[in-house]
Design a protein around this nucleic acid. Structure first.
Lengths: 136, 136
DNA sequence: CTGTATCCTTAGGGATACTG
DNA sequence: CAGTATCCCTAAGGATACAG
């Protein structure tokens, strides 16, 4: 009985990562939290890719269940939640940055600011630490 | 009609990367080429995740169409092909390494050798250059 | 061995009405 | 505003027979 442990096709870490956050939406939600500083349900709905309400609720629940983000009540407002990344979620930043570099380099119409990508590419690990510090 | 120019949901580079290689199989094929040095159709079929023949053929064709790998005839054997990564495909290595780090760190049953992950984590950018050099 | 062709099933996703 | 609940549908994937 591995109730908590999802059954992976394999324990290859690449496969595991993909099974946990490789669906169509999870990484975009995490992107919104990390880069657009979004924290509330309604904000995720406004992103360019237009996630629908049921899918968003489902993904938020899954990500919380996997310990990637946590949901906390707003003190002022009873029915308002705040979504923040756990350490496990923040640990996805380096991978996201590599996805940005690759996606931007190979898409002529990329939405990523050229400077940002260039800076990112040059600095890599050092830059990652900077970004993390700024985010925290 | 969906041939050359894929219509992306958005040109966010994270989204683009995911739409190009974010399916269930592409990255595992690329992993096999990069890390297990596989080059032939039959070899991909033997991996732990057990891809089926039609899906494999489909993915190989898609990856070739997107310029991520290239297919060349073996000189000795007419009906044998050799699959190799293009530069665009090799550029995925840093992202794969980050996926390895994250997946291994957060899966207690990971198949990744602890030493490798530790070395990878510590060296990051430098290590990536080493790996690339070794692969080429 | 290197693939195609078929058939079939299902999970994932989208639209939208509804609730507190 | 912050979600649930339904309904529906398609693309993605799996099994397997077959072909060069």
């Amino acid at each position: 009985m591995k109730a908590n442990n999802p059954r992976f096709r394999s324990h290859c870490p690449i496969n595991v990562t993909q099974e946990l956050v490789g669906d169509r939406w999870s990484l975009l939600i995490i992107r919104d939290i990390l880069f657009a500083r979004k924290t509330h349900y309604g904000e995720f709905l406004t992103s360019a890719e237009r996630i629908s309400t049921n899918i968003l609720a489902d993904r938020l629940e899954k990500l919380e269940r996997h310990g990637i983000l946590s949901k906390t009540r707003e003190t002022e407002n009873r029915s308002r939640y705040r979504y923040v990344l756990t350490q496990k979620g923040q640990d996805l930043l380096p991978m996201l940055l590599e996805m940005i570099i690759w996606g931007a380099r190979h898409d002529p119409e990329t939405a990523a600011p050229a400077e940002f990508v260039e800076q990112l590419t040059q600095h890599r690990a050092d830059f990652m630490r900077q970004v993390l510090a700024a985010v925290e």
